[in-house]
């Protein structure tokens, strides 16, 4: 091999391309998949936030007179001031006469809250643990053994085992879904820290006597942001899915709570005759996760091209 060939790679040192956030966004939405994903998510968020204004009824109100009504059927309800008012059940009613349209819309709130809380908590804890583990050797040895153990337990199993310990409530469900997600974040952050601490600017910071917390948060942490955003989208999606699975299995929030999983669980018994009780929450759930996945894939390709190449 000639000398010039040996030298050549050094001349084309890849400089990390610094692009303005607006340029990144433009790049992101050049792809129709990202646009579709973002649109789906915005719609779901709007529907969830505006649920009280979208002609919904009380999602937990039971109406024995109109059980298992088909989509589009009309029932009359007491309007509270002595008169009656008729309502159209756009998506029918369930086995207790609750309006599925209202339950699906309010269910969106639960799903989004769970997705957001799990993503925030697992990224927060994962980042903190990963930063320390990547930088402090003895912590690394201990923490990574624990993480390996946690990762060896399939996440659905770990989550339902954790839920079985406590009374079913939204908070406990969030914790049970967060714990299996944390090791994946820790592994990601740790890997980034390990490679960043070899960088000249970190060595320079150490040599001028910068204190460790400062090095971690000022110099190393920024490297983790782009991969964490990508990871966060996937955690958000899988948390929504896992919450629905827990509710569906009867191990999630109490059955009267309007969550997509609970609505589907309620419709199971009679789904041969009334498939609509499963259909509508199922569609909303699938579209939400689809939106997250489409957006996540494009975010990964835009923000983290190295990862994109590997997958």
């Amino acid at each position: 091999m000639t000398n010039s060939l040996n030298v050549a790679p050094a001349m084309v040192v890849e400089t990390p391309t610094k692009r303005a956030p607006s340029a990144l966004l433009r790049g992101l939405f050049q792809n129709p998949a990202a646009t579709i994903g973002a649109t789906l998510l915005v719609l779901i968020i709007l529907v969830a936030v505006l649920a009280p204004y979208l002609g919904t009824l009380d999602p937990t109100a039971i109406d024995p007179a109109s059980r298992n009504a088909l989509p589009g059927s009309v029932s009359t309800l007491d309007n509270g001031v002595g008169g009656e008012r008729s309502y159209t059940h756009w998506m029918g009613t369930d086995s207790l006469g609750r309006d599925i349209y209202s339950r699906v819309l309010y269910g969106g709130r639960v799903s989004l809250i769970v997705g957001l809380s799990v993503a925030t908590l697992s990224l927060g804890f994962g980042l903190l643990i990963g930063l320390v583990a990547g930088y402090v050797r003895w912590v690394d040895a201990v923490v990574m053994r624990i993480m390996d153990g946690l990762m060896a337990i399939p996440s659905i199993l770990l989550a339902i085992a954790l839920v079985s310990l406590s009374s079913a409530g939204l908070g406990n469900v969030v914790v049970a879904i967060t714990i299996p997600e944390i090791p994946r974040v820790v592994r990601l952050v740790r890997a980034i820290v390990l490679s960043a601490r070899q960088e000249p600017y970190v060595e320079a910071a150490i040599s001028v006597g910068t204190r460790t917390p400062m090095i971690l948060f000022r110099h190393i942490l920024p490297n983790t942001i782009a991969p964490l955003i990508v990871q966060g989208t996937y955690v958000f999606g899988s948390a929504i899915l896992l919450e629905a699975i827990l509710s569906f299995l009867g191990a999630g929030t109490p059955p009267e709570h309007p969550t997509w999983g609970n609505i589907i669980a309620d419709g199971r018994a009679l789904f041969r005759i009334y498939p609509h009780t499963l259909l509508f929450p199922g569609i909303f759930l699938a579209l939400t996760v689809l939106g997250v996945n489409l957006l996540g894939d494009q975010l990964r390709d835009t923000l983290d091209p190295r990862l994109a190449k590997r997958i």
């Binding site: 998949a33 699975i245 569906f248 789904f271 499963l278 759930l285 996760v289």
Partner: peptide, 22 residues
């Protein structure tokens, strides 16, 4: 591939039961 990742397994299960079995 993207669709397969997004459709929850129990929703797909009931869908297939409804179409192919019922």
């Amino acid at each position: 591939s993207v669709g397969g990742f997004s459709i929850p397994v129990f929703v797909l299960g009931y869908l297939l039961i409804y179409v192919f079995a019922i």
